[in-house]
């Protein structure tokens, strides 16, 4: 039997380890009649940014990797990280990214040394206010001190002259709890719930498309993959790819739903006005253009990839 050691960098009790990776592993063992076994170590064996490097280096065989950490080489997958590309529906986002990958990226922008098993996209982030006034315009947001996720989210606020506080998401709890900031943005509701920052928010402003949707690649090292017979490879792919997008998306939507139940009980929920969304789209434009240029330079049909992604998200979210 081939053993796939799959590493989950989330804490061991996290739903991404228990309900996504482990569930996938069981499916793989089932469809290959246990000719392929999946083992998940009890604790992550490498820091989150080093997942791809560790698979290539042979530390373990398969892993999730946050696409933001590998954006310089997996440019295509970063389409899902663009501001206002994804929606609140993790299943729609994940399915759309897999479809985009198959249609435009698998050949033009493969990740060297690994075989892609699946892609998944978290539900998007909203704007949380910790003052009496909800965030309803760009001025309202940039006039206050916000915690923002490092990367595009923090950059977008910074370019408007906002005094942003940023840092790794796991360290945001203390910043929010200590009242250093008047709001926060960049993480999905389920993360906000698990980081214990929801009780500090007074209102949340929801947008249709989200300022940030964390997305992840799920891959197995090429050497390990090539050890597996073609028949078993096909069997594994039947529970990966599209099926994996649905599995991960459903689990994430379930968690997100629970977090939103908490939010609705605790704070005011405001839907962003069309004017606010248009303003935000304007802020996002340079980042979208930047990605289009970068992806095109790598030989990706960037316009088409972006269209497939956003189009599929729109089509599936509407369902």
């Amino acid at each position: 039997a081939t053993r796939i050691v799959a590493n989950c960098f989330f804490p061991a009790q996290h739903f991404n380890c228990r309900d996504v990776m482990a569930a996938w592993g069981e499916e793989v063992e089932r469809v290959t009649d246990r000719r392929v076994r999946v083992n998940i170590p009890a604790k992550s064996m490498a820091p989150p940014p080093e997942q791809l490097a560790s698979v290539r280096g042979g530390v373990f065989d398969a892993a999730f990797q946050f696409n933001g950490f590998i954006a310089n080489e997996a440019t295509g997958g970063a389409v899902s990280l663009l501001p206002f590309s994804g929606s609140a529906d993790a299943r729609a986002n994940s399915f759309a990214l897999w479809r985009t990958w198959e249609a435009h990226l698998a050949d033009a922008d493969p990740i060297e040394g690994v075989h892609m098993l699946g892609l998944f996209v978290a539900p998007g982030a909203d704007f949380y206010s910790m003052t009496d006034t909800p965030i309803t315009s760009v001025d309202e947001m940039t006039g206050r001190k916000m915690w923002a996720l490092p990367g595009v989210t923090a950059e977008m606020l910074k370019q408007e002259g906002s005094p942003v506080v940023s840092g790794p998401a796991v360290q945001m709890t203390e910043i929010v709890q200590r009242g250093v900031v008047d709001g926060f943005v960049g993480i999905p509701a389920s993360d906000a719930a698990s980081f214990n920052v929801l009780p500090y928010a007074t209102s949340v402003t929801r947008t249709g498309r989200k300022i940030f949707t964390p997305s992840f690649s799920f891959f197995v090292g090429e050497e390990t993959w090539n050890e597996i017979s073609a028949e078993d490879q096909a069997a594994i792919m039947s529970v990966s790819g599209e099926a994996f997008a649905e599995l991960a998306g459903d689990v994430w939507n379930r968690e997100e739903g629970a977090a939103w139940a908490e939010i609705e009980a605790e704070m005011e929920v405001v839907d962003a006005s069309d004017a606010f969304e248009a303003e935000l789209d304007g802020l996002a434009r340079p980042f979208v253009d930047g990605w289009l240029a970068e992806a095109a330079a790598k030989g990706i049909d960037a316009e088409a990839a972006l269209e497939t992604y956003t189009g599929t998200v729109a089509e599936l979210s509407a369902e």
């Binding site: 560790s54 280096g57 042979g58 530390v59």
Partner: peptide, 8 residues
């Protein structure tokens, strides 16, 4: 892999 794992 041992070098990489322990270094990280």
């Amino acid at each position: 892999p041992a070098m990489q794992m322990s270094g990280q």
